[in-house]
């Protein structure tokens, strides 16, 4: 069924390397720029409300890869699936007069609602933290910028950690540090985990190629996640036509109440 949602993306890219490049003698190829290709057999995934999560398999290929560097494992690939972005508010409870209440909060600008990462190895062993922060790859390196001025920078770190931890706990953020495997010298397969509570909307698949710890190229492609079924139709109706939806709710209540008084009428 749909949980076997295996978007097999076998690509024609292997044939892409131009014949001219292929004829370059071994050794000189290192001068040519490495390329990275990914693609999709589909640009849309339909899931229903009983979706329990699935794996999304993405195939990709390196082009113009240096045989020597490949052999000693100097190429690393990171593939991510970023969900639609929205503001996110983290709140912290404290005990006030014996009652736990939200006392502090921080809103982060435009962060992905879901984020799934697959890589050839631990991303922190691929590259240094500052440059990962720069490109925003990895759960620990996503840009989390608070809205408004926060005087206490220690507090920002605390709320960022809480945000990441909560997102990992509820499964919306996932990482698999062995999710990318080379199936041949230049063809790789990435398994991305789609959480059961994946948000619908436009997601972005991004693939990054690192050579000896340096990001050399990246590719991206959009992937639309569409929820289908009666439940999604209801959610859509509630948001798109709230008044008609509310009226229907009231109508159902009136019919139920009235119907009961007719059915159970004693006289």
């Amino acid at each position: 069924m749909r949980r076997l949602l295996q978007t097999i993306l076998l690509l024609p890219f292997l044939a892409l390397g131009s014949p001219a490049a292929a004829q370059v003698p071994f050794g000189e190829a290192s001068g040519a720029k490495e390329g990275l290709e990914i693609g999709a057999s589909t640009s849309e995934i339909a899931i229903t409300s009983d979706f329990r999560g699935a794996d999304l398999t993405i195939f990709g290929a390196l082009t113009n890869a240096d045989e020597l560097f490949l052999a000693i494992g100097q190429y690393d690939v990171v593939v991510t699936l970023e969900g639609p972005k929205d503001y996110a508010t983290v709140r912290k409870k404290e005990r006030v007069f014996g009652i736990w209440m939200n006392t502090e909060g921080m809103t982060f600008e435009q962060v992905p609602e879901s984020y799934s990462l697959a890589s050839t190895r631990m991303i922190d062993s691929i590259d240094e933290a500052p440059s990962l922060n720069n490109i925003g790859v990895g759960i620990d390196h996503l840009a989390l910028n608070p809205v408004g001025y926060i005087p206490d920078s220690g507090m920002i770190g605390e709320f960022r950690d809480a945000y990441r931890r909560l997102k990992l706990t509820n499964g919306l953020y996932q990482r698999d540090t062995s999710g990318v495997r080379f199936v041949s010298s230049s063809l790789f397969r990435a398994s991305l985990k789609l959480p059961a509570n994946i948000p619908d909307g436009m997601h972005m698949v991004r693939a990054y190629l690192f050579k000896s710890g340096q990001l050399i190229t990246q590719r991206e492609m959009p992937l639309r996640v569409v929820k289908t079924g009666i439940e999604q139709a209801i959610t859509d109706a509630a948001h798109d036509r709230p008044l008609a939806y509310g009226l229907l709710c009231v109508l159902i209540a009136v019919i139920t109440g009235w119907g009961a008084s007719i059915v159970f009428r004693k006289d």
Binding site: P242, Y245, G246, L247, V250, T256
Partner: peptide, 29 residues
């Protein structure tokens, strides 16, 4: 309550028609 249902649906999108229907049918019986 009918008015509140409408206003909540319009401002907070928080009326769950499935939940309400199950509760109502069981409730009146």
């Amino acid at each position: 309550t009918a008015y509140t249902t409408m206003v909540q649906a319009a401002t907070n999108y928080s009326v769950d028609i499935v939940l309400a229907s199950i509760l109502m049918v069981a409730g009146v019986i």
